[in-house]
Amino acid sequence: MEPQTTDRARSRRERRRGEDRRDRNWYIDKAVQALVFIGGISGILFIIGIFVFITKEGYGFIAETLDIGEFLTSPRWRPTSDHNPTYGALALIAGTTSVTGLAMLVSVPFSLGAAIYIGEFAKGRTRETLKILVELLAAIPSVVWGFIGLSIMNPLIIKTFNVPIGLNVLNSGLILGLMAAPIMTTIAEDALKAVPDTYREAAEALGATKWQVIYRVVLPAGKNGLVAAVLLGVGRGFGETMAVLMASGHSINLPTSVFDSVRALTATIAAELGETAVGSDHYRALFTLGILLFVVTFVINLTADLVVRGIRKK
């Protein structure tokens, strides 16, 4: 062994020992960790805060005045009646559910198809152009969609189906479907893109056709992301207010066909909250609707989470 090397090694060892102190990078690392923690925690706090606020505003009403049975089973929403106000939310729940349901029926196949085309078939230029177009569609404000529902779809539905009014489940469902589709497409496409190419190659080497690769390998591998995309669309439909308000007809109804006008939970809150006295029964009843929306959204997300977990465990 050459003494020169040993000297070098010794001095290096000395230097490295001296390096064991909390330097700038160490503090930066801690600071960033703290910042990120605050960011994450405050998000959770905000959600809890919102929930507490909504519950507080609605709670007294639920405890004192409201008949839960009536709320969930009666279609009579007459909060402004002078002598006998009733607070039945069934028609509103039915309105939201029917519109969202139709929207999903329209947008899920469309979005998944579009995502598969963009992600698996389209190449180069076509693909980039399509992606930009889809993202542009996602950026259209909901009031514009409502406007389209009101001024284009409405007369179109009246003329095509020969019905007296074109503001109904069909109109708002289609509008909502079109609204939700771009976001669902984008998320679903991301999910497909996250599937490694090695999976595709492995399946192709087995003699799988393009469609077999997608159907047997890519879709199962991207399942979680696809479920997430669909549920995001459902959430979007549930929470959407303006477009539904404009295109649904906004009349209280238990729909029996897609040509019936309906009223959505969200639209009810938006349209009525401004006209109520703070703290009045009507005001608090609207907050109860808010709680209902919150709970439903929570249940959807929880179910999604459990479904995804179930898939993962298997």
Binding site: T198, Y199, E201, A202, A203, E204, A205, L206, G207, V217, A221
Partner: peptide
Amino acid sequence: RRRIGVVFPLPVGL
């Protein structure tokens, strides 16, 4: 391709 089996250098467990 169905007549030809391929094993890649890095394992690909689908």
